[in-house]
C-alpha cells in the first residue's frame, strides 16, 4: 500500500455542486489540506459560492463568509483584525476568489490588503474566464481563447488581448510569499499551502484550475491538461519568498505548446502560425523566468 502523499483530512464535503471534473473543486480540497482545520475562508461571487452553498447546505467543514465580488481583500483584512481582537491569531484567514473577482473586479481590494500588510492568504483560482455566469472573458483569459463574449466567427478570432500578469502586479507589492500552483501537481500544491500557512504577513497564490465546460474538454481530462499547462511552460510553477524566486517544477525541455492548445475546444480555431507565435512567447517568458531565478 502506497503512503498517502496528502493528509487524509477532508475539509471539503461531498455533495457540492461543482461540475464533474472541476479544477476549482480540487483547488479548495488541496488548499485546506495544507492550511488545516483552523482556517476561515472568504469567498466572493464566483463558482465557489455556488459550489459550496446549495441552500441550506454547506460543503465546507469550516467557517465560510460570502463576500461581494469586489471586496475579497477588504474582507480578509477585516477578518484578520477581528480574529486578532478575539485573541485568535492562530486562525488562518484565506480569501478564495476567482480570476475575474481578482484581476478585474477585486483588484483594488487585493492591492489594499497587500499594501496594508494584512496577515492573510489570498488565493486566486484561475479558470481563465467568468465561468459561473456562462464563460464570459476576464482579464485573465488567455489571448486567442474563445468565450461567449469573445466569439469565433467571421473576423472575430477569440480574445484579442493577452492575459493580465497578476503575479507581476502582486509582486510589485512585495508580499511575504507568493506562488503559482496547479491542481495537476497536488504534492507541490500541498507543500506551498503548508509553507504559506507557516508564514505571517500578506501571501498570494495564483492557482491554475482547468474548467471542462469553459475550456471545452471532456471532464476526465482536467489533470492531464493541467499537467500540460505547466510542462509546456505556459503556466510554470514557482514561488517567491521575500523577493527570491525559485522554480519548483524544473523542466529540461519544454513540451510543445501545441500539445496543450490542441486538446481544448476554446483554442480549436488557432492556426499553426498562431500556435507558433504562442510557442515563441512561452519560450521567451520561460527563459526570463530562469534568469530571474539565477539572480542573487
Amino acid at each position: 500500500m502506497a503512503k498517502l502523499t496528502l493528509p487524509p483530512v477532508e475539509l471539503v464535503r461531498s455533495g457540492h455542486s461543482a461540475c464533474p471534473g472541476c479544477g476549482p473543486a480540487l483547488a479548495m480540497r488541496y488548499l485546506l489540506k495544507g492550511t488545516g482545520e483552523r482556517t476561515v475562508v472568504s469567498v466572493p461571487a464566483s463558482c465557489w459560492t455556488i459550489i459550496a452553498t446549495g441552500y441550506p447546505t454547506t460543503a465546507l467543514r469550516l467557517p465560510m463568509i460570502d463576500t461581494p465580488i469586489e471586496a475579497t481583500g477588504a474582507s480578509i483584512s477585516g477578518l484578520r483584525a477581528a480574529l486578532d481582537a478575539l485573541h485568535m491569531s492562530d486562525v488562518q484567514v484565506v480569501g478564495f476568489a476567482g480570476d475575474g473577482g481578482t484581476v478585474d473586479i477585486g483588484l483594488q481590494s487585493l492591492s489594499g490588503m497587500l499594501e496594508r500588510r494584512t496577515d492573510a492568504l489570498y488565493v486566486m483560482y484561475d479558470n481563465e474566464a467568468y465561468m459561473n455566469t456562462g464563460i464570459q472573458r476576464s482579464g485573465s483569459t488567455p489571448e486567442g481563447a474563445w468565450t461567449t463574449t469573445t466569439p469565433v466567427e467571421g473576423m472575430a478570432r477569440g480574445k484579442g488581448e493577452p492575459k493580465k500578469d497578476i503575479m507581476g502586479i502582486v509582486l510589485a507589492h512585495h508580499p511575504v510569499y507568493a506562488a503559482t500552483l496547479n491542481v495537476a501537481y497536488p504534492e507541490d500544491f500541498l507543500r506551498k499551502a503548508q509553507k504559506a500557512a507557516s508564514l505571517k504577513g500578506p501571501r498570494f497564490f495564483h492557482v491554475l484550475a482547468p474548467c471542462p465546460p469553459g475550456w471545452k474538454f471532456a471532464s476526465d481530462q482536467t489533470v492531464q491538461i493541467g499537467r500540460l499547462a505547466t510542462d509546456t511552460g505556459i503556466f510554470p510553477l514557482y514561488e517567491v519568498e521575500n523577493g527570491k524566486l525559485r522554480v519548483t517544477r524544473k523542466l529540461g525541455q519544454l513540451k510543445p505548446v501545441r500539445d496543450y492548445i490542441k486538446v481544448q475546444g476554446r483554442f480549436g480555431h488557432l492556426t499553426d502560425a498562431e500556435i507558433d507565435t504562442v510557442e515563441h512567447e512561452v519560450q521567451a517568458s520561460w527563459a526570463a523566468l530562469l534568469q530571474r531565478e539565477a539572480r542573487p
Binding site: S14, H16, Y55, P56, T58
Partner: peptide
C-alpha cells in the same frame, strides 16, 4: 447554511 452538503446525492 449549516447542513452538511453530503445529504445531497450528486
Amino acid at each position: 447554511a449549516s447542513m452538511a452538503s453530503d445529504v445531497l446525492h450528486t
